[in-house]
């Protein structure tokens, strides 16, 4: 067994039975499982709320203006990551780095705003233990926040890789950016469901 073969060489080959690269198909399947994860949480939210004797209105106890700001930030970051992909597609390295950095900054901004929200609640002595409403609020937004962190890690990794010529010229690179973009849109969409469910309904 002196010979070995390069296991990643066929990963970017779109000449597959489905016409989609392995990596892209893998990301879509991963997102399918993520949808089941968040769907379970939304289902639990509905069940707990329906069975509860008292459930506060989101706008009475949570900070709607800050959450609105966060929604705008996150939607904007979805646009910037598409721009980053478009620049990577055009082999425009500077453009890619600019838009990717903007995406990362926006997502950090989202976390900072979220931290202010959490901080104000903790200051009042409110935490996940306070009531089932706060329990589901902290769990869902917290889990979403972890997904944002994961996205920042991936995007920052891609930003770094683009500065290394070997990675930037790797034919796999564009597929990686696309995968990160798909994931980022998913995280964005989860927030678009979370925002009304927790704050507005």
């Amino acid at each position: 067994m002196s010979q070995t073969y390069n296991p990643t060489a066929f990963m970017n080959n779109a000449d597959t039975h489905s016409g989609v690269t392995n990596a892209k198909l893998g990301v879509w399947l991963f997102l399918a499982s993520e949808i089941m994860l968040f769907a379970t949480l939304f289902t639990s939210y509905i069940v707990l709320r329906m069975a509860s004797s008292s459930w506060p209105w989101g706008w009475d106890v949570l900070n709607v203006p800050l959450a609105t700001l966060n929604t705008v930030i996150l939607i904007t970051s979805s646009v910037t990551i598409v721009m980053a992909y478009a620049k990577a597609y055009d082999k425009d390295k500077a453009g890619f780095q600019k838009w990717m950095a903007a995406t990362i900054l926006l997502s950090l901004g989202f976390l900072v705003v979220k931290a202010f929200e959490y901080g104000a609640e903790f200051k009042l002595g409110i935490g996940p233990h306070t009531s089932v409403f706060y329990a589901i609020y902290f769990t869902m937004t917290g889990l979403h926040g972890i997904h944002i962190l994961g996205g920042i890690a991936v995007n920052a990794g891609l930003l770094y890789m683009s500065s290394v010529t070997e990675h930037w010229e790797n034919p796999l690179f564009l597929g990686r950016v696309e995968g990160a973009g798909l994931y980022w849109h998913f995280v964005d969409i989860v927030w678009i469901f979370l925002f009304p469910a927790l704050y507005l309904l």
Binding site: L29, S33, T40, S44, L48, H129, V132, A135, F138
Partner: peptide, 25 residues
């Protein structure tokens, strides 16, 4: 496995919250 395991993952997270952060899911 892909579609059935994530619900248990979410359910386990909720139970973990109940045990560690004293929520009442």
């Amino acid at each position: 496995l892909l579609l059935a395991f994530p619900p248990l993952e979410a359910a386990s997270v909720l139970q973990l919250m109940d045990r560690v952060f004293h929520t009442s899911f």
